[in-house]
Design a protein around this nucleic acid. Structure first.
Lengths: 91, 91
DNA sequence: TAAGTCATTATCCTATAGGATAAATTTTAA
DNA sequence: TTAAAATTTATCCTATAGGATAATGACTTA
């Protein structure tokens, strides 16, 4: 799709995805959960794909469903997750 | 993908998508913005698709990029958006 | 009553997100 | 050190999310 009609730059979205991935990684590591365990918990069978989502490689990123399940697995609220993301994002 | 490996039920995700759509609609209407204007603001050229995302028809739903742009257009934080969604969701 | 927004339903198409696989690399612990 | 566990890189495939299109309906006001 041609996204140029929106005045919100693609770069900004990319950065957001990146910060989201970084934050998932941070939270996961702080709870001593392996990528494999987290991936399986949220129904992703490929650690490689999961890894790429965390690290924003090959344009892979988490979607709403992933994040919902990740937050639930971590025992936190989406709103709290995004609050932390926002702090990182604007810094 | 076979999502049965995750113990978080599909029904729950569907409901979440639904509440998200309803909330976007609520906020959009409260700001007197038409579907067309919002769709264009976030780079969606099809009001039909946008409408289906708001109403969760044909399994259409907003993704992270959509929601990021919607929140920015509405002038609110993602975290605040999701806080409201959570209140609706658990009720 | 017609014309003009605004929104919804329905169907179809395709670019790509989601995922599989394999191999390399890095980390950990024995 | 070495073996295993954990992570990352890279490439490829395909199911479907994202979107186009068209027709319908609902509401407004001229």
């Amino acid at each position: 799709m041609d996204k140029t009609l929106s005045d919100i730059p693609e770069k900004e979205i990319k950065k957001y995805h990146k910060v989201v991935g970084q934050h998932v990684k941070l939270l996961r590591e702080s709870k001593k959960i392996s990528q494999l365990d987290m991936a399986l918990a949220i129904g992703i069978k490929s650690i490689a794909f999961y890894s790429n989502c965390e690290n924003n490689k090959y344009d892979k990123h988490f979607n709403m469903e992933h994040l919902y399940k990740i937050c639930k697995t971590l025992g936190i609220q989406m709103s709290d997750f995004f609050k932390e993301v926002e702090q990182d994002f604007s810094s």
